[in-house]
Design a binder for these strands. Sequence first.
DNA 1: TAGCGGGTCTGTAGCGCTACAGTAAACTGC
DNA 2: GCAGTTTACTGTAGCGCTACAGACCCGCTA
Lengths: 350, 350
Amino acid sequence: MGRVTLKTVAEKVGVSSMTVSNAFSRPDQLSAQLRERILAVAAELGYVGPDPAARTLARGTTGTVGILLTESLRHAFTDEISTAFLAAIADELTPSGLALTLLPATEPGPIVPARDVAIDGALVYSCRADSPALDWLRRRGLPLVFVDQAPVSGIPSVNVDDRGGARAAAQHLVDLGHRRVGLLNVGDEESTTRLNDWHSSRQRRLGWLDALEPAGVTVTVAQSKHCNQDEGYELAKKMLARDRPTALLCFSDAIAAGAMLAADDLGLSIPGDLSIVGFDDNPLATRLRPALTTVDQDVAGKGRAAANALTEAVRRHRSNLAGGTPAKVRHLTLPTRLVVRDSTAAVTPR
Amino acid sequence: MGRVTLKTVAEKVGVSSMTVSNAFSRPDQLSAQLRERILAVAAELGYVGPDPAARTLARGTTGTVGILLTESLRHAFTDEISTAFLAAIADELTPSGLALTLLPATEPGPIVPARDVAIDGALVYSCRADSPALDWLRRRGLPLVFVDQAPVSGIPSVNVDDRGGARAAAQHLVDLGHRRVGLLNVGDEESTTRLNDWHSSRQRRLGWLDALEPAGVTVTVAQSKHCNQDEGYELAKKMLARDRPTALLCFSDAIAAGAMLAADDLGLSIPGDLSIVGFDDNPLATRLRPALTTVDQDVAGKGRAAANALTEAVRRHRSNLAGGTPAKVRHLTLPTRLVVRDSTAAVTPR
DNA sequence: TAGCGGGTCTGTAGCGCTACAGTAAACTGC
DNA sequence: GCAGTTTACTGTAGCGCTACAGACCCGCTA
């Protein structure tokens, strides 16, 4: 016995397969009575409903959107900020009935998810602008939304005001009288310089310098490849061993947490000997002792905005194919806000 | 100008569309030279590669597996244990080139992801056995793997030894001389009784009682709907206000963390006045003060096992369709281990 | 009684691709 | 120099569904 399809059902009921299709997909196209009969026969035959793959091909839509995440998906799940972001997206997508497919950005191998998985559109979250996976998505002509990426003309984007937030953080230190400040950033020198890569890292750095340079503050910079507590610890330890700054500006709260540990190891008290500022306003920030001064970004809002921008882009893309109005591209920047807690203080006079 | 398809390319090159298909999908089927030419023309025409939707229909495979998560995806992303689980799955799936689609288990509305999204198989993680979404997946005849669910014959499953771990935790308290113990569980009375629902919750409860009842310990039970710190706090507060037990067994470390806060609020010292045991060995457990005695489960191992079981099931499903050997179903139970830290102590003699 | 609109149902023609079963030519070995 | 094998390519026949353009019938108006 072959597979049960629309046709099987249609033959058994004695109607055209089109009518069975309508029974499932467009109930208003047939009488309630016939529909009942068809559904009954379908149930009897074990027919579950139109095959998604075939429907996708015939209709041209998949009911799924992708999200492209950097290298290992592991990081995306480990970091509290990115999980909160994903959670918000998932929540916002749920009512629309769209499922979310995680696209690992692997390059080698014959299967390239970004090229081979059927999706209606995709979110691109904090990926290198030169990522091959991103290139595939663009070549496919899929509706995309960039998040935490350098905006590109023609592609809607959602960002937070990294630069403004960083500036506020740095100004806070300047106001407290700090004259020697260390920057704990992510990425490497090359990539923060090159446009489009590590967008947030670059923007935050610019923001910090916006405030520090005019004030004539002595700045030392260290960068780590990854954004986690362990790297922050190592980075801070090295920096504090050298000509010690009186304050640290960190790319993230996770890195700041590592820095606090390092300071502790070196017998430095916070904020007495060292002020530390993070970024993100990770839940972690309030768990730390002393509670961390940081820059709040609305990750949940970012997730919601991204999800909405994408559903919107997908919708427009469809109507464009049907000869609708051309897409209107929005670049959104959400505000950030300095949150002063207990990890920063006026520099101690000697 | 219509869309660029295989045929467009084939016509321009002057070969059959089959040859173009082979150029992309089975390079060994044509000469390297012709393949070059085809790829060149394809690039020139802006042809990216075979359309995933059409390929899916023709081949019968999608390159994606789903994961069905309870109600809100939000919880799955908020809890450190489930994110670690997801991370492990994602990692393990990546080399196989399978993408992971999150299936929200929404029921209302015309679009039901579990029914309408094209996938090759799915993981079912800690869902109610009577979830309609799960029902759709089963009706579709997709290869499934159950995780943290009551094993069902014919469906591979991955579990941890909830009961054994819980028993060890309870025995630990008995050995310390505790005679009045409170259980902080999740779920409700009804669902932990009914078979198949809230499997872990039920198993842990059974495990606790395995050790407590023979020892003649006085047991009080409280249950909360969700598994998080806030609920744990409320639950513990209520329980500790009544005839106070000398120890608490908690469904999870998150709940235990809430309980610790509640104890603190009530002026109880841990472990002096109250011993607390969690479950999971969440990273959180070592951050707490005192460090939490808990039951370790290997979430990463669980994720890897689940991913492997699923890829295996998908593989077998395919070869079964092609007349291969019938599926061999494995039910895996990973060990758990009591980790004694500082939140438990011998009951204070009065 | 012709004409019209609306509610139901049907048939055709794909969607874009790949499996499979070829055919034709180029090699192999003796 | 002829069967036997290999390599390189082609044609057909779907995969299972839906869009779209009718066809048919019924009751209603003028």
